[in-house]
Each structure stands twice: as structure tokens, then as C-alpha cells.
């Protein structure tokens, strides 16, 4: 294999590291929890992992497009607050559907706000979404000042116990996301996304609608965060306006573990999903190993710092060599 082919292969398979980490995490988890591969355990794991998987998928799209979305956790909180406060245990099926649809729209509106500021007013993604995260968190607290509320039991048990063909519901959702992503990559939009994340100036000069693409990534992220919010509400069956707080950092970490470069233009959603699952397994391991939960935050943060430092370190080494 010649030089170019090899480089392109390693470029095209940024998931290699994630895959190895995944196998390792799986192994360690299995040692602590030998019944890991039992159907009921798998199902409950997937149920718990799913909200982060959804968030990380959206985050991956934003980061691929050269941005970052720090407001996803707050959007999750808003959705959770809306669902728990509006539904309660006795809501009818029609009302539930209506409220869920509204919640998804709210997520997209929140994403549009981010997208508008960043793509059309050219504000910094990190500052903008940090600011809007407080806005969204405030709205969530306004809707649901105290933890409480709930969702009809029928729905949360549907989320918990539906296992088509004996496989966890989450697997089917992952499959759906992957199919949607695979198809997106085959469209012009998919190419635009990579181009905008890779080199926006070049993309613009080529005629790619850069602003629109950037805007769309935040709408997608808002929608995925809303879906994550729905999932977490069904998982917990109750409302808490701060439920999303911890998810923001985790979603970024998942994307980074999955081989997507924080500077944009390289990577994909499959890696982010794998990254989210790895983080879930870490969490399992930490709880089984009886280690304090803050280790989880520590690990997340360390991964991001390393990912940020890597290009700089490589540059430094290259400079030294000459």
C-alpha cells in the first residue's frame, strides 16, 4: 500500500481508537459484572445510554461542521421540564403525542436560536451556546421550579420493556440514526457539512452555502437534544429541571473519543455513538468498582483536554525536528 492510500485509510477510519477502547471497556465491565451480556442487563444498559447517544449524535454533526454546542444539556432540561409538567401520570395518548411533538419543536427552535447567532451574526459558537445554555436552563427552571411531575406509566414502561425480537429498543434507534447518517453522507448536504467544517473559506469560494449549513447543524443538534430529553424523561419517569446539566460535557467527550476532530471536518456520527456507549460503560465500571462518581467527570474532562492539546503537541514535536 503506498503512502497516499495508507494516509487516506487512516483518515477514513478515525473509529479505530474508539473501537479498541470499546472492547477494553466492555471487557473490564464484564469482569466486574459477569452477567453483562444477559438480555435484561443489556436492555437496561441501552436504556440508560440512549439519551447520551442521541445527544452525542447531534453534537457530532455540529462539531463536524466546525462548531460546538454547549447548550444541549440545557435543552434536555427544558424538554424534561415540559414533558413532566404538562403530562403528569394521567395524560391521554393523544395529549402525550402532542406534547412530545411540541417538545421536539422547542428543541429545534432552541437550536435555531444558536444557529442564527452563530451562522448569520458570526458569533463564536462556544460563547454563544454557553450563554444560551443559561437562557435555556432558566426557562427549564421557570417551567418546573421544583423536581416533580411525571409521565403516564404506560409510556415509560413501553420505553423500558419494548424489546423487538428480544433486542433492546435502543439498538433499533441506533440503527435508525446510522442509516439516516449513512444516507446523509451520500447527499450533497453531507459533503457540504465536511467542507464547511474542514475549511469554510474554501467552501464559500466553491459555492457552498456555508451559513445555511452551519445553521442547520445547530437545528439538528437541538432536535437530537430534544429526543434525548424525551428519552431521559421516559427513563426517569419524572421531572427535574437540572437533569441535563451533566450531559453537555459528556456529549462532547463522546464525540472526541469517537475520533471526530474538535476543529471540525473529520469524523462521523458512528464514532460519537460508540463514544457515548464507552462513557456509559465507564460509568458502570466506576459504580461497580465503588469509586466516587466525580471520577467520571474527571475522566471526561481529561479526555477533552488531551484532545485539545494533541494538535499543539504534534506541532511542537514537528518544530523540534527541523
Amino acid at each position: 500500500m503506498n503512502r497516499q492510500r495508507w494516509q487516506s485509510v487512516s483518515f477514513r477510519n478515525p473509529y479505530l481508537f474508539a473501537l479498541l477502547l470499546f472492547l477494553l471497556a466492555l471487557l473490564v465491565n464484564f469482569i466486574f459484572q459477569p452477567n453483562l451480556f444477559q438480555r435484561s442487563i443489556l436492555n437496561s444498559n441501552m436504556r440508560v445510554f440512549l439519551p447520551l447517544i442521541l445527544l452525542a449524535s447531534g453534537q457530532a454533526v455540529v462539531i463536524l461542521g466546525g462548531g460546538i454546542d454547549i447548550s444541549v444539556g440545557a435543552i434536555v432540561s427544558i424538554i424534561n421540564a415540559i414533558l413532566a409538567s404538562q403530562l403528569g401520570a394521567g395524560a391521554s395518548a393523544e395529549k402525550t403525542l402532542l406534547v412530545v411533538v411540541i417538545a421536539l419543536l422547542v428543541g429545534m427552535v432552541a437550536g435555531s436560536i444558536n444557529g442564527f447567532f452563530i451562522a448569520f451574526l458570526r458569533l463564536q459558537p462556544i460563547i454563544t451556546t454557553y450563554a444560551t445554555s443559561f437562557l435555556f436552563a432558566g426557562i427549564a427552571l421557570y417551567i418546573l421550579p421544583e423536581p416533580g411531575g411525571g409521565v403516564p406509566l404506560v409510556i415509560s414502561s413501553f420505553y423500558r420493556d419494548t424489546t423487538p425480537l428480544g433486542l433492546p429498543l435502543g439498538l433499533y434507534i441506533i440503527l435508525l440514526i446510522l442509516i439516516a447518517w449513512y444516507m446523509t453522507r451520500q447527499t450533497r448536504y453531507g459533503r457540504y457539512l465536511y467542507a464547511v467544517g474542514g475549511k469554510p473559506d474554501a467552501a464559500y469560494e466553491t459555492g457552498v452555502p456555508v451559513n445555511t449549513v452551519q445553521f442547520s447543524t445547530y437545528v439538528i443538534s437541538g432536535l437530537m437534544a430534544a429526543l434525548g430529553g424525551v428519552a431521559i424523561t421516559l427513563l426517569t419517569g419524572s421531572g427535574n429541571a437540572q437533569v441535563g446539566d451533566a450531559l453537555t460535557l459528556a456529549s462532547i467527550t463522546a464525540v472526541v473519543i469517537g475520533g471526530t476532530a474538535l476543529r471540525g471536518g473529520v469524523g462521523g456520527i458512528a464514532g460519537a455513538i460508540l463514544g457515548a456507549i464507552i462513557l456509559g460503560l465507564f460509568k458502570n465500571i466506576i459504580s461497580f468498582a465503588n469509586v466516587d462518581l466525580w471520577w467520571q467527570t474527571f475522566v471526561n474532562a481529561a479526555i477533552i483536554v488531551l484532545a485539545l492539546a494533541a494538535p499543539g503537541v504534534i506541532n511542537l514535536l514537528r518544530r523540534k525536528r527541523i
Binding site: 457540504y192 465536511y194 474542514g198 475549511k199 474554501a202 467552501a203 459555492g207 457552498v208 471536518g265
Partner: peptide, 17 residues
């Protein structure tokens, strides 16, 4: 006006795929 991370083919056909 090339995107360095993308392939030769992807770059040539960008917006004209």
C-alpha cells in the same frame, strides 16, 4: 479553494456532485 481533509474526488466535485 480546496478542503484539505476531503479527498481529491470530493474536492473536485464539491457543489457539482
Amino acid at each position: 479553494s480546496l478542503v484539505p481533509q476531503m479527498t481529491v474526488a470530493e474536492n473536485i466535485w464539491l457543489t457539482r456532485e
